[in-house]
Design a protein around this nucleic acid. Structure first.
Lengths: 225, 225
DNA sequence: AATTGTTGTAATCGAATGATTACAAAACTC
DNA sequence: GAGTTTTGTAATCATTCGATTACAACAATT
């Protein structure tokens, strides 16, 4: 009657590694970020996430309850990371000076490189942002984007008011472009370089225009101060 | 015997209107554009498209073969409409003059209003652009976006070269924002007005910067010509 | 070494969905 | 008005997928 599972010597089925739940949770979230980003919320399956995380599908469902809940956690983390990253850059102390543009450009570019390093985060965010059918997911994604947009627009404290929205748009759109225009942004390194240039270019333009036309509708005014 | 379907006087089941296949095809494509845009490719069902078009699900499948094929037709039409619209605006003859900025801004803004009138087109396009899993759909969407981007960047013939990419990005990103940021772009009319202002603002910046810094890295140079 | 909790899977269920088949009815042709 | 084409649906099939259940193996506690 003794069950014959004492294959002590040879291990036929490689014993899967048991790791703490908290650690496994991180693996699942990381895998889900990639899978959701690539296939979209509806296109992704819990089994794909599970395989990407190296475990079985029922575990994923039991750990997060539902697929929607899993996605909401991925989304919350993506937003948190994006917002925190941008806020840090903005909050960094700056001195006004000649190399001001160069320094800020470099920092913004570096932030982008970090964020785009795992595209799954941005892709998941974009998916949630665009998708209109699930009210909970859509509302959270749009609220998060709005926060980033307003933060860049209102709190950057760098370019003049009329042009902050302009810069904020540029940052977000660069993100989108960098995700899926391999012909424009060749590889990751090229994308990083291009983004640094893009920011420097934007800031150049913004500051030049400011110097040329201080506050009102820019006509053919003489440069002032 | 004689089949009893001669309910000549009263019509219990309202006789569904039979219309030519070509016309029905247009209805289905219009409905599919909305449904795909709202739910994404994977999230949309052929039955939802059928109901939105006022017919039964098997008809949709039989007319387009597969769901993927239906989406590809929606995508092709969206790209065609976008590219055609932008190309027309760019190709329109312009005179250089004082109100040059005002005129081009108005035209770009009007084009946006037209395109955003049915958001389904843009949403479907964005879904396809972002989604990475289906190679055929993704490749077509990205190729189309790239064509628009390059057209705006290379053929606009209006702003100086260094800044055309800047303007092209702005156009595309404004599209994205207008789709799903109701707190920023309140209603459709407000969105239209905001977009006109955005373009005017962008062109103001671009042209001012050009006047201030003709070709090289914008330093503190004196305006020339 | 029992007990108990943690970490994991196999099996399977029910609903959703793309696709197919078979059929019906209107409209057109001769 | 019989035959043919066009326009449409009801019924249903096979697959997929999220979720559930039941169970196994390992680890910690006592």
């Amino acid at each position: 009657m003794s069950s014959v599972n004492e294959t002590s010597g040879t291990e036929l089925t490689p014993p899967i590694e048991r790791i703490p739940a908290a650690e496994r949770r991180e693996q699942i979230l990381a895998a889900a970020s990639v899978v959701f980003g690539e296939r979209g919320y509806s296109g992704a399956t819990t089994d794909q996430v599970a395989r990407a995380a190296g475990i079985s599908q029922p575990y994923v469902v039991r750990m997060f309850g539902t697929k929607e809940n899993l996605f909401l956690e991925v989304l919350a983390r993506a937003l948190d990371r994006l917002i925190t990253g941008f806020r840090q850059i903005i909050a960094e102390p700056r001195e006004r000076g000649d190399d001001e543009i160069e320094l800020l450009s470099a920092r913004l570019g570096a932030a982008y490189v970090d964020l785009i390093e795992d595209r799954g985060i941005l892709l998941s965010l974009m998916q949630a942002f665009i998708s209109g059918h699930n009210p909970v997911i859509g509302a959270k994604a749009r609220a998060g984007f709005l926060e980033i947009y307003r933060m860049m627009r209102d709190e950057a404290g760098f370019p003049p008011e009329e042009i902050r929205g302009f810069l904020a748009e540029g940052m977000l759109f660069n993100t989108l472009l960098a995700i899926r225009l391999p012909d424009v942004y060749d590889d990751d390194e090229a994308a990083a370089e291009l983004m640094r240039c893009a920011f420097r270019g934007k800031l150049d333009v913004v500051l030049s225009a400011t110097a040329a036309a201080p506050a009102e509708h820019a006509g053919t005014q003489t440069p002032q101060q």
